[in-house]
Structure formats: structure tokens, C-alpha cells
């Protein structure tokens, strides 16, 4: 059987796709999507919750919108981060233990393609799950938003508000509903999970157990939420060149997850600037490429 020599070069898209699809199928058949049923129950349950908010007339009815958004995005965050760390950390040790890795690497499969395929498979699963959750969140938010809008406009009419004021009220309520901004928050959640999956992949290249990968992965996640503050304390603005270098190295080794905190601002109805989104995309790409490259450096030399 002959094939073009280029087929054996790393980063072959077809081969990576085969591995990614396989990983996706493997995780789906591990019944990971059962979590979506839990999510549906939580979001539908959120309809009946009332978060404490100020009861000013202009805020009438908006509590439910905050509740649904907070609960949905919270669930999405938990699900995507747990899946990114645990699923990625599970795959490599399992392949080594079951010796399926031998049969794959004994085929003309470069190790880099194997790693990227596994990572993309997990990332695809997280993406599909987040899409399903987003759809459900939007389906719940749409009727609530129009209900709140009607309520507030009726109140404004009763108070004799001008058409301009009513238009402003409608705009404000719409900003709390299923906006493009809110979909961007889901995108940011997804990007954060991509980074964590890349971190877990790196960990699993030198760890031999899923437990170790999961524990260290969650530790890195925890540090990631606070490391920007820690950098500020230890290497503040007056720390000099050495301090700045140390701060930079720390940011590369451990991902700075505070970058992704703009999700909270979006939930509050604040507008996400295109520049901020592009910045997050750029940082995500940097982290993913860095961790995948480091994974390959370790994995390429690994003996089985």
C-alpha cells in the first residue's frame, strides 16, 4: 500500500479529525451528556427561584432574568471546567493502560496528531454541550424577557411615560435578555475550558493516573482565578525588570483565568467590547498553543 509521503507529516487535518471524532464518540458513549439532563432540571428549576434584588419599580420582574442567566452560566462553567480537566486527564492514561495507545502509535500516526486529536475531541464535546445548554437558556430567557418588557412598559404607560422613555425601557430590558453579548459570555466560558483542557493534556503526558491529573488540574484552576491578584501583591508595579520577568513567566506557566472574568460583567448586562473579546481570543490561542506544544515536547520523548 503506498501513500504520499506528506501523509506522514505531523498536523495532517484528516488524521487529527479521525482521532477527534473518535474521542468525541468515546466520551459520548461514556454517557457524559447525561449532565445535560441535570442542567435542564436546574434551568427549569431556576424559573421558580427568586434572587434577592432591589425592588425598585424600574427593576420589576428583572430578578428572574438574572437568576436564569446566573444559574445557566454557572452550570456551564462548572460542567465545562470539570469536563475539560477530568475527561482530558482520563483519556491518555486509559489508552496506555488498555494498550490501545500501542496500536495507534504503531500505525503511521505522529504523536503530535494524536495529542491534538484527543484535545480537539474533548473540546468538541464541550462545544456541543455548551451549545445545547445555550439553546435551552435562550429558550427559557426569551419568554421571560418579553414578559418583563410588557410588565415594565405597562407600568411606564400607567405613569404616563413618553415614547422615548418606553423605548429606553425596552432597550434596557432587552439588554438583560438573550443578547449577542450573552452568547459571547458562553464563548468566553468555552475558551476558558479550552485552556483548561490543554493544561490537563500537558499534565496527563507525564502523570500516570487520572487522579493526579484531576487534582493538579483543579489546583491550577484555583490558582488561575487568583494569580493576577497574587502577581499584583508579589510583583507590583514597582518590582523592576526581574519582578516583571517573574510575573510574565508565572502567567505563562499557570494560566491567568481572571482574564475570563468578564462573564460576570456580561451577566450584569454590561456591553462586551469587540477589543476585549479579541484580546481573550488571542490569550486563549496563546495558552492553547503553548500547552499543546509543551505536551508534545514531553509526549514525543515518552516511552511505552
Amino acid at each position: 500500500m503506498s501513500a504520499a509521503p506528506t501523509a506522514y507529516r505531523p498536523l495532517n487535518p484528516r488524521r487529527i479529525l479521525v482521532l477527534a471524532r473518535h474521542t468525541f464518540t468515546q466520551l459520548v458513549r461514556m454517557k457524559v451528556f447525561y449532565f445535560l439532563a441535570v442542567f435542564a432540571v436546574v434551568v427549569i428549576g431556576a424559573n421558580f427561584l427568586e434572587l434577592p434584588t432591589d425592588h425598585l419599580p424600574e427593576n420589576a420582574g428583572t430578578e428572574i432574568l438574572y437568576t436564569v442567566k446566573n444559574t445557566s452560566l454557572g452550570c456551564m462553567s462548572i460542567f465545562s471546567l470539570v469536563l475539560a480537566i477530568v475527561a482530558t486527564g482520563l483519556l491518555l492514561p486509559k489508552d496506555v493502560e488498555d494498550r490501545t495507545l500501542y496500536t495507534i502509535l504503531a500505525k503511521p500516526v505522529p504523536r503530535l496528531d494524536y495529542l491534538i486529536g484527543k484535545w480537539l475531541g474533548v473540546v468538541a464535546l464541550i462545544f456541543v454541550s455548551l451549545m445545547a445548554m445555550t439553546l435551552l437558556m435562550n429558550l427559557v430567557l426569551i419568554p421571560h424577557t418579553s414578559k418583563v418588557m410588557q410588565l415594565q412598559i405597562s407600568a411606564a404607560e400607567f405613569a404616563g411615560a413618553s415614547a422615548e422613555t418606553k423605548a429606553k425601557i425596552a432597550e434596557d430590558v432587552r439588554a438583560l435578555g438573550p443578547t449577542w453579548n450573552l452568547q459571547a459570555a458562553v464563548l468566553v466560558t468555552f475558551m476558558r475550558a479550552m485552556v483548561l483542557a490543554a493544561v490537563a493534556l500537558l499534565l496527563s503526558t507525564f502523570s500516570t493516573s487520572t487522579l493526579f491529573t484531576a487534582i493538579v488540574g483543579f489546583l491550577i484552576l484555583f490558582i488561575g482565578f487568583f494569580q493576577a491578584d497574587a502577581r499584583e501583591i508579589y510583583f507590583g508595579k514597582d518590582s523592576g525588570l526581574a519582578g516583571k520577568a517573574a510575573s510574565g513567566i508565572m502567567t505563562v506557566i499557570l494560566p491567568d483565568l481572571q482574564v475570563y472574568n468578564l462573564i460576570d460583567a456580561i451577566v450584569e448586562g454590561k456591553f462586551l467590547k469587540a477589543f476585549d473579546l479579541l484580546k481573550v481570543i488571542g490569550i486563549t490561542a496563546f495558552y492553547c498553543v503553548t500547552y499543546l506544544f509543551a505536551s508534545w515536547l514531553v509526549f514525543a520523548r515518552k516511552e511505552f
Binding site: 500500500m1 501513500a3 509521503p5 506522514y8 473518535h22 468515546q26 488498555d98 494498550r99 490501545t100 500501542y102 496500536t103 504503531a106 500505525k107 503511521p108 500516526v109 505522529p110
Partner: peptide
């Protein structure tokens, strides 16, 4: 080299597969 494996089929001891 990866290309050497196009000509090889390998059955490991006690394979499990997926």
C-alpha cells in the same frame, strides 16, 4: 520514523481496544 509504520501491523500482548 513515522513513515516506517505504514508497512507494519502490530498486535500487542493482551490487547483491549475500545
Amino acid at each position: 520514523a513515522v513513515d516506517s509504520r505504514q508497512d507494519v501491523g502490530f498486535l500487542p500482548e493482551n490487547p483491549y481496544f475500545y
